[in-house]
Nucleic acid binder design. Structure first.
Length: 994
DNA sequence: ACATACAGCC
DNA sequence: AATAAGCTGTATGT
């Protein structure tokens, strides 16, 4: 309500101004006075140096402000802010208090235009602030109003604990994150690639080239007379000039990319307004425009700078430090509190008052929330008072969007030194100081994990190692290389951007990067040894790992400085995975003779209690048990199984052949990997052994997994051929079964029609129901369809259609099957006389009924049939038997004569039908029934009512009529014969048929 | 550094 | 024939 209104207003106000501001402002920038930019630059530099200070400052001020605000605010005193529950309650209910708060907030929003910075700051503070301080603030009624969210969360320790506890990350989530991480990396790669391509745009370059003074250009022209050193220096100096020039010229009006974080699963989707500070989405034309407006985020600025360099003939790479979602982020709560704050704020803040605060909170470390807030204000102000932009506001803006560490920078090729020189024009303003570009590990906004350099020729290279101070010890752990198969993945990925032909300078660079990596010192703390690609501590060994030559390469101090303990350091290359001999065997390896285990598995505990009883024995046992020797790969050979001799396949104690890996297939043998292989082999009488390819463990028992067989190679083809033919036969059988099933359904279908017809003919409520000749109707409709539409459709042709009908009269479905189905024969079948309803059937009585089209079956045949409501079982429960059991076994509903008169209408119908159609039917039925074939089983329900067997059809009618009355019209659409259970009965039939 | 929880393996 | 398991290691949180 109010909240929504407020939000909407906000959004509208914010969005529009922003764009116009940015683009319009850009134009202004062009005519802008140099002095202004200088000032901006100065401020930026100052800002990045003292950013830390700024961060701290806000809190204090914030407190003041908040209290201030509190007093001014009309906040109703609310009980001590409590856990989340409390905070959550606030938003929803429309209590007066809440309303008051809402009102206040709304007002703030509306005040945007003329609101003071301080107010904004307050809002920001409330939203952005985190942790403990908030708790205190929460106590204050006013605070509760705004930031309920935050405070509630943090304040309650118990709640926190619970959250932390509950947060255990699942393995599937981990996998998901990894995949998303990869996907994100790919997206970022493509994004940068695209921007890099834009940097080659001539129009962009042309526009930017004009910014470079001729003098500067001249200095950059290679001079063969200069010494290498001088040339290099001159080049770097020139780069510095360009850097300064660009830093002054490009105006920061948006926030660049920053590292995203995982949100709580239960967190609400962040409002779009969270991202207003980001660059607008950009296409190439937009990019060209920015080459003129010279404003945007640092990222765009760097991209343009890259284009500028290329435009003046300098080889420049666009380097991006990808900021993908981390794959290993620990459980949500554990991470720095910013994310959680965000989440909370977002979730709780019902009126989106804190949106901006949230956004700022994210970037707290990089940019002070305050400045952001201001910037937003300024943006709005700027919209309405353009003058402000030109005056003092712009610099502050820039400060707001300045990030202390770059996501984008460029590398230019210093031909004198044959080296790439890094230039950061917006964050650190450095040239050739690669070590200054990596943010501290604690920096939440920006982490240097993948630094990828995109060249003019659209190739790209991973240059992370140039910028990471502890690539092996730290950086690597955040890269996919640290995940299983991750190395290969990354290689494949980057190969896509690889240069077809490596240049000399590439090799030089590779060597340099490798050198840098190699020069990385030995980690100073234990933690960095974990998963270190080069070094290992014994303490970090997995239990199936050993360090084989135990050659220490150094020592680490574990423990405190006062209490030094040194632990030996080993090389990762000396680490081997060890397995038991049996395990090796399962991998197709054989432990060499005479090899001594490098390690022993732990003794298995089975009987600890017993140990107490018999210490001596236990000790012995333990010693023996401990003996499970573990060997390294180098202690094994490839296992060579005994060969197949004279067609005789060797086998193990179980009569099988172990074939855990392909290499375990015996010489002279061939693995025929098919389920039918054993049958086939047996069929042609060749020796074979089931191939055991693994085990499945259910409960305690491991069951061998057999996949095919091994036969002598000379028989393999024969076996395979037999298998093929068996498959063919199976398919044939399957087809036959499907045919039979189709026929069966046909039969049921027509039976249903027939029953319906009969029912219609019955007398109801003293009034004789309408009767119809189903068959006639069907035929008519069918012809109609055939003529009008197409010969195809449900019924291929009349003959096909007719045949089933005709067959319907036949007693035995089986016959149908064996006889080749209904398909044969004449078309007469479908004539009236041939319908499943005997021509002379007395049941067909009375005038034709009008077709009821209300309940369409989408089928002319069904539609043409007026079906009576499905019979409801009004009979007592005991009437309906669970199963006919013995009686049924006699054969479906068809049973015997005793049963066939049963109260079941359908059964009765069938029976009658049969009787009418053929006197012999009964006999046949008996034969058929046992096999479960025929329409019999269709009527299990009915069959289930043995007690109601009645010899008189009239009885049935009576029952039916009563049922009809009770049944609902909606049931009309159902075929009376439908019985869910029926299908279950089919398998027997199918099986038998097969 | 210790304890708890979760997931994989047999 | 029906039913059902535990242990250990690793990782996370306090």
């Amino acid at each position: 309500m109010a909240g929504a209104r407020g939000r909407a207003r906000k959004t509208a106000a914010a969005v529009t101004p922003r764009r116009s501001t940015r683009r319009g402002g850009a134009l202004q920038a062009d005519d802008g006075v140099p002095a202004v930019f200088q000032e901006m630059l100065r401020e930026e530099q100052a800002a990045h140096v003292s950013s830390t200070d700024e961060e701290e400052r806000p809190p204090k001020k914030r407190k003041t402000v908040s209290s201030h605000k509190a007093s001014s605010t009309v906040m109703p005193p609310s009980p001590a802010p409590h856990p989340t529950e409390h905070s959550r309650e606030l938003p929803s209910p429309a209590t007066p208090q809440v309303k008051a708060g809402r009102m206040l907030q709304t007002i703030e929003d509306s005040d945007e235009s003329d609101g003071s910075d301080e107010e904004w700051e307050d809002a920001l503070v409330d939203g952005g602030d985190s942790d403990e301080e908030d708790e205190v603030e929460l106590v204050t009624p006013q605070v509760a109003d705004i930031s309920i969210t935050i405070g509630g969360k943090k304040s309650d320790e118990q709640m926190t604990k619970r959250r932390v506890r509950r947060r255990a990350i699942t393995s599937v989530d981990k996998k998901k994150r990894l995949e998303i991480h990869k996907l994100h990396v790919l997206c970022l790669l493509y994004h940068v690639h695209r921007r890099n391509a834009w940097c080659n745009d001539l129009r962009v370059q042309t526009a930017l080239r004009k910014l470079v003074p001729p003098k500067t250009l001249l200095n950059l022209v290679p001079n063969p007379d200069l010494t290498q050193y001088s040339a290099s220096k001159r080049f770097v100096d020139g780069m510095n000039e360009l850097k300064v020039l660009w830093s002054k010229r490009f105006k920061l009006t948006a926030q660049g990319m920053y590292k995203p974080k995982w949100a709580d699963a239960d967190a609400d989707i962040r409002p779009v307004s969270d991202f207003y500070d980001l660059d607008d989405p950009m296409d190439k034309d937009d990019f060209r425009r920015t080459a003129h407006t010279l404003q945007g985020s640092q990222d765009v600025g760097t991209q343009l700078f890259c284009a500028l360099l290329r435009g003046i003939g300098i080889e420049a790479r666009l380097v991006c430090s990808l900021q993908p979602l981390p794959f290993a982020s620990s459980a949500q709560p554990s991470t720095p509190q910013k994310p959680s704050m965000q989440q909370n704020t977002i979730v709780v803040d019902p009126y989106n008052n804190n949106i901006h605060g949230v956004a700022s909170s994210k970037s707290t470390s990089g940019t002070s929330s305050r400045s952001k807030k201001l910037s937003r204000m300024e943006r709005i102000m700027g919209e309405r008072h353009t003058v402000l932009n030109k005056t003092g506001v712009a610099p502050r803006k820039q400060k707001a969007y300045h990030a202390p560490y770059p996501v984008y920078w460029v590398e230019v090729f210093n031909t004198a030194h044959q080296k790439w020189v890094a230039i950061d024009t917006h964050s650190t303003f450095t040239v050739n100081s690669p070590e200054k570009l990596e943010p501290p590990l604690s920096h939440s906004q920006n982490s240097l994990t993948y630094a990828i350099a995109f060249e003019e020729d659209y190739t790209a290279k991973d240059v992370t190692r140039r910028y990471a101070k502890a690539y092996n010890a730290k950086t690597r752990k955040f890269r996919v290389e640290c995940t299983p198969q991750g190395g290969e993945w990354w290689q494949r990925t980057m190969k896509f951007f690889g240069r077809a032909m490596a240049l000399d300078r590439d090799q030089v660079e590779d060597a340099a990067l490798a050198r840098k990596e190699a020069s990385e010192g030995v980690p100073k703390n234990v933690q960095d040894f974990k998963d270190h690609p080069v070094y290992v501590l014994e303490r970090h060994l997995k239990h199936n790992e050993v360090i084989h030559p135990m050659d220490p390469v150094g020592k680490v101090n574990v423990g405190t400085g006062m209490n030094p303990k040194l632990e030996p350091i080993y090389r990762r290359t000396n680490v081997h995975i060890v397995r038991s001999a049996d395990k090796w065997y399962r991998m197709g390896q054989d432990v060499k003779d005479g090899e001594q285990p490098l390690k022993h598995a732990k003794a298995k505990k089975g009987r600890r209690l017993s140990i107490d009883l018999n210490t001596d024995i236990d000790v012995d046992d333990q010693q023996e048990e401990i003996g499970a020797g573990l060997y390294a790969k180098f202690q094994t050979n490839l296992y060579v199984p005994p060969p197949v001799i004279r067609g005789r396949v060797p086998r193990n104690a179980y009569g099988n052949l172990d074939l855990y890996v392909p290499s375990m297939c015996p010489p002279g043998g061939t693995h025929v990997r098919h389920k039918l292989a054993s049958k086939a082999a047996r069929l042609i009488g060749v020796d074979y052994a089931d191939a055991v390819t693994g085990f499945s463990f259910k409960g305690r028992h491991g069951t061998a997994i057999v996949q095919g067989v091994v036969v002598a190679s000379e028989y393999a083809d024969a076996v395979q051929q037999v298998i093929d033919s068996m498959i063919f036969e199976q398919e044939e059988a399957a087809n036959a079964a499907r045919s039979r099933e189709s026929l069966r359904l046909w039969r049921r279908f027509f039976l249903g029609l027939r029953i319906a017809q009969r029912v219609n003919a019955m007398e109801i409520d003293g009034e004789k129901g309408p009767a119809m000749d189903v068959q006639r109707e069907i035929d008519r409709e069918d012809k109609h369809i055939v003529e009008k539409e197409m010969a195809g459709g449900f019924f291929p042709d009349e003959a096909d259609f007719a045949e089933p009908v005709r067959r319907g009269n036949e007693p035995l479905p089986q016959q149908d099957l064996s006889g080749g189905g209904f398909i044969p024969d004449d078309e007469q079948g479908h004539n009236e006389g041939g319908g499943f309803l005997p021509d002379d059937d007395d049941e067909v009585v009375g005038p034709p009924i009008s077709l009821n089209r209300e309940h369409s079956f989408e089928s002319s045949i069904l539609d043409s049939q007026q079906l009576r409501p499905r019979r409801k079982s009004t009979f007592p429960d005991d009437f309906i038997l669970e199963e006919d059991d013995d009686e049924d076994e006699g054969g479906g509903f068809v049973h015997d004569d005793d049963h066939n008169d049963a109260g079941l209408l359908e059964a009765g119908c069938e029976k009658e039908e049969m009787d009418v159609d053929r006197s012999e039917e009964k006999d046949e039925k008996h034969v058929d029934s046992p096999e479960g074939q025929g329409g019999g089983f269709l009527f299990q329900d009915e069959i289930k009512q043995p007690e109601h067997k009645q010899s008189h059809p009239e009885h049935e009618d009576a029952a039916m009529s009563s049922d009809r009355e009770e049944s609902e019209p909606s049931d009309t659409g159902s075929l009376p014969l439908e019985d869910p259970e029926d299908e279950d009965a089919d398998p027997d039939w199918l099986v038998d048929a097969t």
